[in-house]
């Protein structure tokens, strides 16, 4: 039995279509990432799975229970950390945790082992009101509160949005340790580079899943030849590459531009690469380097959503 089993979920808000028929299943003990930009439907999906919202169509089974019929059972079995801080600002750190423990008929002591790793980092501030905590500490408290009843499945809605790279890394290390303790984790994020930290991912855009697979399989399915191109004048390089006839797409990717090209049936990738190199020299570029690379998740996401790009 999968931890989460979803078939054909649809949800509209008036004229706005949030989910256009989503199906997937997440296995027990896996970190399943739902990756896509703001407004793609991630939060709606999480609210339906945590029984806070009812879908217009489709079914969802969480830990063996139906999200509509058995919502009370599900609420006992899942932990949910929404994107916005939703703890009680006027209660202290310790009071918040105690409150969530008692709502779920348990105590901090009983499940301390599970939260120790995270809660011990904020325990020195346990008499501070939650509203007075820094962003990083609020997040740790929220995660502790979502875990205190020892849920089978943890839902984390954009836990790393607006968080700096170092704190993001820390959070992912915590998630890995929770997974090792047997908890299934569904996590959403707009950061494509976090895909590699999930066992499997679903790429989502405009209420639709574009692809569901392991990160390695998704990048393996990328069916274009892709090059990284560098030069001294990166901005001018971008427009010149785009003007080259064989180039299909060209996007800035940090210190290089990622370029996909059209190759004729008998044309070698090397010859296109060489032609592009000569063309850029002719355009007056210096220090030009072109290398064949393996695509990342962000390349795949852009390829899958190419039709949307205006």
């Amino acid at each position: 039995m999968p931890a989460v089993d979803v078939k054909g979920l649809k949800k509209n808000y008036g004229k706005v279509i949030a989910l256009r028929g989503i199906s997937f299943s997440a296995e027990k003990g896996e970190i399943f990432g739902i990756i896509g930009p703001d407004g793609s439907g991630k939060t709606t999906l999480f609210r339906i799975l945590t029984t806070l919202l009812v879908a217009d169509e489709g079914t969802a089974v969480v830990d063996g229970f139906d999200v509509v019929k058995d919502y009370k059972e599900i609420r006992k079995r899942v932990g949910y950390m929404p994107g916005r801080f939703s703890l009680y600002q006027d209660l202290t750190v310790e009071e918040n945790l105690q409150f969530f423990a008692s709502v779920f008929h348990t105590t901090i002591e009983e499940n301390y082992d599970l939260v120790k790793d995270i809660y011990s980092q904020i325990e020195p501030f346990k008499t501070r009101r939650a509203g007075k905590l820094s962003g990083g500490m609020k997040q740790k408290l929220a995660l502790s509160c979502a875990l205190i009843h020892k849920p089978a499945i943890l839902f984390l809605d954009e836990p790393t949005t607006g968080v700096d790279p170092v704190s993001r890394k820390e959070l992912w290390e915590m998630l890995k340790r929770l997974k090792n303790q047997g908890i299934t984790i569904l996590v959403s994020t707009p950061y494509m580079d976090e895909a590699a930290l999930c066992d499997r991912i679903a790429l989502i855009k405009d209420g639709r899943f574009l692809s569901i697979d392991t990160p390695a399989n998704i990048t393996a399915q990328f069916n274009q030849k892709i090059f990284a191109v560098r030069g001294l004048e990166m901005s001018r390089l971008l427009s010149d590459i785009r003007a080259f006839p064989a180039v299909k797409t060209c996007y800035a990717f940090g210190d290089s531009h990622h370029v996909t090209v059209e190759t004729g049936q008998n044309e070698l990738q090397e010859s296109v690469q060489h032609a592009l190199y000569l063309y850029l020299l002719f355009k007056g570029h210096t220090n030009v380097e072109i290398e064949k690379i393996n695509p990342g998740i962000e390349d795949c996401f852009m390829e899958l959503t190419k039709a949307d790009v205006v």
Partner: peptide
Amino acid sequence: TGGVDPAARRQFWE
């Protein structure tokens, strides 16, 4: 560019 999709994020930088 927080939360903006990858293609739009690049258009923004342009």
